[in-house]
Design a protein around this nucleic acid. Structure first.
Lengths: 149, 149
DNA sequence: TATAAAATTTATAATCATTATAATATTATT
DNA sequence: AATAATATTATAATGATTATAAATTTTATA
């Protein structure tokens, strides 16, 4: 328990972020809930255990984390910003039926663009939209498979 | 003049959209202003010539156009939705310094993702962020080059 | 052509995520 | 412990988008 908190604190310290209790818990949350939570997801879960938690803190903390490259912002729909603690380059698939977001491996760096030769590229993003296999074949695996949101 | 309006009307009719004056003008605007305008850009320009124009009409019309594949929504920042009348697959580069959005050609279809084999993919998006060449080398071409927003 | 129905546009209010502000609490430093 | 710096909180403000209902325009029908 303490060990877990210590290792999370260590991650923050390495990024020059003071490891307050709130920051540690938010970091823990996004590390344990890798299914692209929204600010609301994070806040509503944590406020149960930290009743004084403010949504502003969640916003502030995520911005800090973003600058420190501890989290990546996923902007697919304009009305829901999501956060991903896996910052290595990968793609996202959003199901237009159930709303789930799936990660997928994709070699984004192989996308070389000649016309951007003299541009400084800081960030490459790939996302797809469509219907996920679960929604395409409902029931099929329902009994066997755990559904993840 | 009438010719132009007629050809725009034709495009709408082909998509089963009734060619009202507002719709024609909005279509015209996004075709002539391909630099990824926002709803505000579109509204503020057109309201000068159509004083009764309502922002709700712009929203409604763009939604219609989106469903008809006459326009593509660009979601890069969560706080600004932009529209692109060029619906063929291409990438977008957003400059973090000046805010400009550049189009670039990229072979998105070459991105084959095995883990999405049983997913129905409707839409593939690629966007980069960074600093554009204009911002990297300011002044350099300033005298010679027209600045485009 | 007159009238009714349908579709579109408009003005306005409501919503909701995010940001800003200022007060309070916590932590670090002397 | 006192003071300064930092972080958190509660609350208000902002602003883009959506919802609603009235007004207008267009279309269909008698």
């Amino acid at each position: 328990m303490n060990q877990k908190i210590d290792s999370l604190a260590k991650i923050l310290i390495e990024k020059n972020i003071k490891p307050s209790y709130q920051r540690i818990r938010i970091l823990q949350y996004i590390n344990e809930n890798i299914n692209h939570p929204t600010v609301d997801n994070i806040f509503n879960s944590l406020v149960k255990e930290i009743p004084t938690l403010s949504k502003a803190t969640v916003y502030n903390t995520l911005e800090l984390f973003e600058d420190a490259n501890l989290v990546k912002v996923i902007t697919i729909e304009d009305n829901e910003t999501r956060y991903d603690s896996r910052v290595h380059n990968h793609g996202h698939f959003k199901c237009e039926s159930c709303g789930s977001i799936y990660d997928f491996e994709v070699d984004i760096d192989s996308l070389v663009v000649n016309s951007l030769k003299y541009f400084k590229i800081n960030d490459k993003n790939v996302y797809f939209k469509g219907i996920c296999s679960r929604c395409l074949t409902p029931n099929k695996f329902l009994a066997k498979t755990k559904i993840r949101k």
